[in-house]
Design a protein around this nucleic acid. Structure first.
Lengths: 250, 250
DNA sequence: TGAGCGCGCTGACGCAGATCAGCATGTTGC
DNA sequence: GCAACATGCTGATCTGCGTCAGCGCGCTCA
């Protein structure tokens, strides 16, 4: 079990690591990325970093803790689009669009580095490879949103939950925060409900079902995979999902 | 009613127009984009342009006709992620990832220009602003997928349908293929069902309901908005959605 | 001219998951 | 030491949408 936090060193930094998976970054590129990542700020649990409808928002790069992005609907309900873990961008679209189309909220206390629109666009013109790398990262995020869409559209509540927990596990493993036996998970059943398009009551029932079937348990902030293979099978989870072996652009 | 098709001229070309909404393209940039757009190919209705799981796929830029991107699930069902109309990319992610994570199929007979991975990455290094522009276009696509996610997660079947038809209308208006009274729509009720996470039977019932309530009709390949304002209200559709007034990066 | 088929359309019935209502625990603050 | 509250958990009931089964229309092709 290697659950180590992100470090500010430029060699081993979750964002650099993620981008390097796609483009081979020059030392200069790495320096620019690391620069964006250096100036950390702390945010308390529950703080809103990005506001739907607001103009001229910055983006952030998450250094530690969990966040979630969501959209509010008239009627007070919300749909959580995705959770973000260290190394992920927060609110990238709110920089590229004039006004933000979603909210981002800190789920735990978090550390994040602000990236202003100026910084980002300047970095793109100075180090063009970076734009390609960020395009890749954004496409990876989109691939996850698409997978969530399939989840909501075509899977039953328990398959949905199973798939979601497997996906989170896979993402956390990539940043060294979990392994195939499980991971620490600060999400409440209410958050799960908002993400999976279910009621909190039903989330509870589904978790019980998965537990009683010996597939996964989720208790006291920890997800434990009891029978990983059976769970993968049950959720029809693609093991290759999020795997990208080696840089495409070198 | 101005429903004109895309023309191959570089000044008035749906892709150039779309990208220009975000970055001010130099004449050289326009030339590169137009070059990607020149070599057209025809595809028959139902042809699969991109295959899930296949490696080294090209992308395409759609010049005329409609396409759809979808994911297949074990069990034979599918979830349509989005429909594409002229000016949209087909399978951009399948170029950025080594292996494609989705399918793209021609809904009507279509014209599309192939863009290979080499072409695209070369264009990015030669004309860096293009990478930023494409990042923006990809983010716009992601914003639509997010909206579809909200649709599936939190809206009832009839709100979902209403929102979907309004979104299609807005997109088509941007490329000059419809207006606020309606648009030509080649989608079958089966396609709608696969996109909206409903059964075809229920799609039919929902369309009847919307028709009887005097909101929209969808008959013989044509969507007619009967009461646009009421429909927008019913679907809680954001009128600013997909509006981006003027380039952000000049 | 009629078989075959894709697509739109409808009624009867069943079920997954929402809603409502309530209890149990642990944590925070006075 | 006990409110006040957030969160987990559970049973009873209701309902939106799926499933099944079937009809009608307009094609295309022999």
């Amino acid at each position: 079990m290697t659950e180590r936090p992100a470090t500010p060193s430029s060699q081993d930094n979750p964002l650099v690591r993620k981008l390097s998976a796609f483009v081979r970054l020059s030392p200069n590129d790495v320096e620019v990325v690391a620069g964006m990542f250096r100036r950390r700020r702390n945010f308390a649990m529950g703080v809103e970093l990005i506001h739907q409808g607001q103009v001229g928002q910055s983006a952030f790069v998450l250094a530690s803790g969990w966040a979630c992005s969501y959209k509010l609907l008239s009627g007070g309900t919300r749909q959580i689009v995705d959770f973000q873990v260290p190394g992920d961008f927060l609110g990238l679209r709110s920089v590229l669009f004039r006004t933000s189309d979603h909210n981002v909220e800190a789920v735990t206390t978090i550390q994040a580095s602000e990236v202003t629109q100026r910084d980002l666009l300047a970095a793109f013109t100075e180090t063009p490879r970076l734009a390609t790398a960020v395009l890749w990262a954004a496409s990876r995020d989109e691939a996850m949103v698409v997978e969530h869409l399939v989840n909501l559209g075509r899977r039953s509540a328990s398959e949905r939950m199973a798939h979601f927990l497997l996906e989170l596990g896979a993402r956390l493993r990539l940043v060294g925060m979990g392994n195939s036996t499980g991971f620490a998970c600060p999400l409440s059943q209410y958050l799960l409900a908002d993400a999976l398009g279910l009621s909190a009551v039903h989330v509870n029932r589904v978790l019980r079902e998965l537990r009683e079937d010996g597939l996964v348990t989720f208790r006291r902030g920890r997800v434990e995979f009891r029978n990983y293979d059976a769970l993968v099978d049950f959720a029809s989870f693609d093991r290759a999902y999020l795997d990208h072996d080696g840089p495409l652009l070198s």
